[in-house]
Amino acid sequence: MKINAGNLKKGDFILYQNEIWQVQKAEFYAPGKGAALMKTKIWNVKTGKNIDITFKSGEEVEVVEVESRLMVFLYKDNENLYFMDEKTFNQYSVPLTAVSGLEKYLKEGEKLYVYIFNDVPLSVRPPLSVRLKVVKAEEAVKGDTVSSAKKPVTLETGAVIMAPLFIKEGDIVIVNPETGEYTGREGK
């Protein structure tokens, strides 16, 4: 389906230079020296690469219908993440290159949306947040940099994030898997 670039929204999938990209950011821009433009940041579902592209707002862009299907994350190896569709028991693999670091925050057995186009899995929709157990946290040293007041902690998936000084081993922390940022602690 073709739409005017002016109507692009975050989350849309588009065909650009024969590849499928997801719109990460779409901002209207009126430079005052010509017609309005759409400044976008698009993400290549295959390579995980982000690029900035400016479209004319009246320019036609091919939008593709990509399905997001809930699947169980089974395991990963050095190249792929493996998922299973619980309805059909079919297994799908998503290349690590397409998830750009997300794998560090995924637990086996977790349910996630996988983007599918023509029955080929493209990528994984990053959850807004993940809850992970802290398996290693150093005791905070008093007098450490006051401004940041954060320390590295290791999570059950092996990922290391910066968390506030009060976080201890065994705590469940809430992390934004796209940025690896600590956003909160599960209440006790």
Partner: peptide
């Protein structure tokens, strides 16, 4: 994509 677009429009797109 220059089809049906003016010099001003394309100029502005490249500039941005």
């Amino acid at each position: 994509n220059i089809e049906n677009f003016s010099y001003e429009e394309i100029w502005s797109q490249i500039y941005t």
